[in-house]
Simulated assay, not measured.
Amino acid sequence: MYFKMEYMSPLGPLTMASDGNALIGLWMEGQKYFAATVQEEMAENDDLPVFNDAKSWLDKYFAGGKPVPSDLPLAPAGSAFRQEVWQLLCEIPYGEITTYGQLAKEIAKKRNKPGMSAQAIGGAVGHNPISIIIPCHRVVGSAGSLTGYAGGIEKKIQLLALEGVDMSSMSIPKKGTAL
């Protein structure tokens, strides 16, 4: 059985999902792939310990604190490749960014391969079911393009600004599929 609860954030309502022990989802209203990893009905329950811990984590984050993903029990559902990418996302420090290409290089190195597609990384990043906590908003395109955020570019900008990221050299793409 799965559970859900809503958290009101500065970005608007967030829906949290849990299997009863770990957080399995955190989605923004209208987010692409909303609840895509949950295959059954979720019952409302705002009194689960994991939800209380996640609320505290989010309160601290939105107040300018620097909580880390490992502070919470996380269990995102996805392929081994996606899990590997999401683990790398958890290692991006608060207030810092990386690129899809850099993540591709890191995965290729871990797998002893000569290279990896940045687009494959983008697909895994875009399907991250635990937004904000698994910080996919810290990944940008080459040359600072603010592309590829399932919650919307404006929310990505808000999260990076909250973390104090210098966005003066970043750009918003004029067209593309990941806007």
Rank of each mutant, 00 (worst) to 15 (best):
I130D: 03
S56P: 00
T147I: 10
V139S: 01
W57I: 01
N45L: 04
G123L: 11
A35I: 04
Q39H: 11
E91V: 01
I130G: 00
D59T: 07
G141W: 04
I133D: 02
A108H: 07
M42E: 13
L58V: 11
V139Y: 05
R138M: 01
S142F: 08
P67A: 06
Y94W: 11
G126C: 09
K60V: 12
N52R: 15
G64R: 08
S56Q: 09
T98M: 07
K32I: 13
G123A: 10
I121N: 02
W86S: 06
F62C: 14
Y33F: 15
D47C: 13
A124E: 03
P73H: 13
C136E: 11
V139F: 05
A143E: 15
D47F: 08
Y61D: 01
H127F: 08
N112Y: 09
P76V: 01
R111W: 06
K32Q: 12
I92Q: 00
V139R: 01
K60Q: 14
K66T: 13
I133F: 03
P73M: 15
I133E: 00
P49D: 10
G122L: 04
G78K: 04
G148R: 04
G95F: 05
Q83L: 05
P67R: 03
G122W: 04
A124P: 03
A143S: 15
Q119A: 12
S142W: 10
E41F: 13
K55G: 07
Q83R: 13
V125Q: 07
G123Q: 08
F34M: 03
Y61T: 02
N52V: 12
P93M: 04
Q39M: 11
G30I: 05
D46W: 02
D71C: 10
D47Y: 10
T98D: 12
P49A: 12
A124D: 02
G65N: 04
E106S: 06
G144T: 06
H127Y: 12
H137E: 09
N45D: 13
G151N: 05
V50W: 03
N112A: 15
A54R: 04
A108I: 09
S117E: 06
Y61N: 01
